[in-house]
Amino acid sequence: MAIRPSARWRARVDEEATEVAAGTRALSDAFLSQLFPRSLLAATDGALRSFESDVEALRDRGDEQVFEAIKRVVLVLNRINEDHGGAGYETEEREELCLYIDQTLTEHGIDVPALAARRGIGRAEITDDWRDW
């Protein structure tokens, strides 16, 4: 099962906090809790959990149903990013989120390259119509 990017980000924040507490990292070198505030992690987790439920509920896996699920999660992630000053998701995080969406669809039996091709786009473009981050 694809691991939510927010889970990886949370683990990095926790690891950094442990290093600061142990004295192996200077507080002045600790920045991950600002890069990934709890509000961003919680909201992103919720959005991705909802996306997982949406994908699990797809019955006939019609392209429009799949793209509606993608659209819903992307629009929520747009709001989360806006709520965090437009800096919630930087380049690496954007790539992780897009990969997660692709992997989740694939794990539920959706042929993402074929889905994208039927729309005349590349696999990496399935979120582009709605994505602001």
Rank of each mutant, 00 (worst) to 15 (best):
I101K: 08
R118E: 09
G86H: 04
A87E: 12
E19M: 14
L77V: 01
E64C: 06
I3M: 09
R38Y: 13
I80T: 01
V73E: 00
D45Y: 00
R72Q: 11
S39R: 12
E15Q: 13
L35E: 12
L27R: 15
R49W: 10
A124V: 12
A21D: 11
T104Y: 09
L115T: 02
T106R: 14
S6L: 05
G109S: 03
E125A: 11
M1T: 06
H108P: 05
A42W: 10
G120D: 03
S50P: 05
G46Y: 00
P113S: 07
E93I: 09
A42N: 14
F31H: 13
Q103H: 10
E125W: 03
G120V: 01
W133S: 02
A17S: 11
A17T: 06
G85V: 00
A22K: 08
E16M: 01
D132Y: 04
S6T: 10
V66M: 07
A117W: 07
L41F: 01
L99P: 01
L97N: 07
P37W: 08
A2E: 13
D129F: 04
I3F: 10
K71P: 05
A21W: 03
H84C: 00
I3G: 01
D83Y: 00
A57E: 15
C98E: 15
E82W: 07
A11H: 07
A57H: 11
G86F: 01
R119E: 13
L41P: 07
F36W: 12
E82A: 14
G62Y: 11
A22W: 03
Q34E: 13
L35A: 09
F36C: 06
D54S: 15
W130P: 09
R25N: 04
I101F: 06
A47G: 01
R123Q: 14
L77G: 02
A21Q: 09
D54V: 11
A11C: 00
A57D: 11
E92N: 14
A116K: 02
R12T: 11
